[in-house]
Write a protein that binds this DNA or RNA. Structure first.
Lengths: 244, 244
DNA sequence: ACTGATTTTCCGCATAATGGAAAGCGAGGG
DNA sequence: CCCTCGCTTTCCATTATGCGGAAAATCAGT
């Protein structure tokens, strides 16, 4: 039914990604449960195609070829999201966004603007750090505590406003809250006066994107958060199912 | 030596990317020369893993899973580029950048700053449109005339300064020049007073990234362009070889 | 409802991938 | 300097696995 070697090659790539993009043969073996010989052979094929690279210490890393494919795929996702974002705007009256995690940045890949006079707009393509945005929190909350901490250390959690969370410990607590509550908030942490609410988009397994609404603090705060979150969860679930 | 089915699966993914991320079975067959049954089986495996998606009209498209892998790979590329960019700064005295094409945007993925007092900096993560930057021109010049035109139409080529090229026809001519000359210039087309020179980075086959130097117009113009371009070509070639 | 183009399924055959085990390599310690 | 240990790479007989031609099914257009 499914082509075994292709399936396994994908397992190898995903194992590499899970290890931060770089791993030794034995680490991959431990992660995938495949025999050494098999993994090595798969890596060699990916190697000659430029999708994997071997470093001087003989460890393996994800290669540049994936950047191209990822870029094209991203544009596709943006197109598919459009109708769901439109419905989210109808639901909330505020600007709706779709964002993904790319490296250590959050990237807004699609947006539908609110019809109101005062509104957020033109964020598509913008890159921001995860710690000061609702979408960022949702995306990072999917990672393990250790991965999240490593990412926060790399980015340094710079203060954007008086409300920005700049302490790793506080952020880990916030991420726990996001996980249990199922949605994340940004209360003027990226920009004063702008509040956001974001939910994760699952494609079956992991979180692949985050969907959010953002607008002036007063209007966002006037909405019933739990009710809005519930509606967004449904939209995100429908979108996630379509992606799969 | 190489795992046949994995190789072919990669052919299929690349064929999809070449067709703008979306194609029918027969188009893929034409592009790869593989029999229908084989392609269909490969697509089904990629489908169940979320790396390919089937649309309602039964055509196939690149799936969301690739966005994740691409993001991690991008971070790797940035790390590997660092030493080459450092050498480029030594060579030119100006800030050196590495950029890739992601969807319709150019993204700066790595940078090493010039030691001078007046310098460009903090561009990593920035997304700009291709038509007004040297790196953008280099990346788009690798695409076919038709693809380039489609991209330029989607982005609309907005004017950033008085020097910005806003006519598709003029840009196509400029891209021809870039191809024959081997490097691209940006003479204050993105920001007045800022000039750039960029060269392509090949990883054997296609252009995977662009390397550039940017700085104040007077200093960039004072450099010997052909000599600088030659030095940059060598660095880009070395980096490209390392990627492969 | 019919036709043509495109996609999907089927199945016997042979090839292509498998994986255990042995050889090679390199870093670190005695 | 040589030995050891952990990890990576190569090898090869075996058979499961993927192959691909051709038929069946589906869809769009007339």
């Amino acid at each position: 039914m499914s082509v075994q070697s292709v399936d396994r090659a994908l397992d190898v790539l995903e194992a590499l990604a899970d290890h931060g993009g770089e791993a030794g043969l034995s680490e991959i073996a431990a992660a995938t449960g495949l025999p050494y010989g098999t993994i090595h052979r798969l890596l060699r094929t990916l190697l000659t195609r430029g999708y994997v690279r071997q470093e001087s210490d003989r460890r393996y890393a994800l290669g540049g070829g994936l950047v191209r494919l990822g870029g094209v795929a991203e544009r596709m996702v943006a197109v598919w999201a459009q109708p769901y974002l439109t419905r989210l705007v109808e639901l909330s009256g505020e600007t709706a966004n779709l964002a993904v995690l790319e490296g250590d940045f959050v990237v807004y890949v699609a947006q539908v603007s609110s019809p109101r006079r005062l509104r957020m707009f033109a964020e598509v393509g913008r890159r921001v750090l995860p710690h000061s945005t609702a979408v960022g929190k949702v995306l990072v909350a999917d990672r393990s505590r250790a991965e999240a901490l490593a990412l926060l250390e790399r980015t340094g959690m710079p203060r954007k406003t008086a409300n920005t969370i700049t302490e790793p410990a506080a952020m880990l607590a916030e991420l726990d809250l996001v996980r249990t509550r199922g949605y994340a908030l940004d209360l003027g942490e990226e920009e004063l006066g702008v509040h956001c609410l974001a939910v994760p988009v699952h494609d079956g397994g992991r979180v692949v994107a985050a969907m959010s609404v953002s607008g002036p603090a007063e209007r966002i705060d006037a909405l019933d958060r739990d009710e809005l979150a519930e509606g967004m969860r449904q939209l995100a679930a429908a979108f996630g199912t379509e992606l799969r």
